[in-house]
């Protein structure tokens, strides 16, 4: 287990242990514990899952299986808004890379990362099925098409203040 996250989050892990102690003898404890753990940490990273596995003396795959089966669980911390930048062929040809670069610059994170204030997560995605609008990005459920890099600041600002 990586010690850094354990040390940085000593209190949270102490709380996690309290949760495990409270639920471990109840019926179907794993779902309950995973829910509470996700509330506590915002997601279920490997260190948290390993901690739970060890405390309950069950295989890590039991926990990972449940965490990946139910869509309400997430393994990585995500921002309030996930920005998906389509890198499919049509979008790529129409300048998706420049749009992505501009987003990176504007928010200050690389694709796959989440901003420190947990507002944005930036992702490069496969074809979003809106090739006619290329290049396309999605912010949660909102679609923006026919973009040029100079559009980006205005769009991002709309979500910043919300």
């Amino acid at each position: 287990m990586s010690t850094s996250i354990l040390q940085d989050n000593k209190e949270k892990f102490a709380e996690l242990q309290r949760i495990i102690d409270e639920y471990k003898d109840k019926e179907g404890p794993l779902m309950l514990i995973l829910h509470k753990a996700q509330e506590l940490f915002g997601c279920l990273p490997v260190e948290v899952q390993e901690y739970i596995a060890e405390s309950l003396d069950i295989p890590l795959t039991d926990i990972y299986g449940v965490a990946t089966f139910y869509s309400q669980f997430t393994l990585q911390p995500k921002g309030k808004y996930t920005i998906g930048v389509c890198m499919g062929t049509a979008c790529y040809v129409k300048g998706a890379q420049a749009v992505l670069d501009e987003l990176s610059k504007e928010i200050g994170i690389k694709p796959g990362e989440t901003s420190e204030d947990f507002v944005f997560t930036l992702e490069a995605t496969r074809c979003l099925g809106a090739c006619g609008l290329a290049p396309v990005i999605m912010i949660n459920d909102d679609v923006y098409g026919r973009l040029v890099p100079s559009d980006i600041k205005g769009i991002v600002d709309k979500y910043r203040g919300r």
């Binding site: 069950i58 295989p59 890590l60 795959t61 039991d62 990972y64 299986g65 990946t68 089966f69």
Partner: peptide
Amino acid sequence: IGAIGATER
């Protein structure tokens, strides 16, 4: 052991 398990859906 449980080194492998059923995951995703």
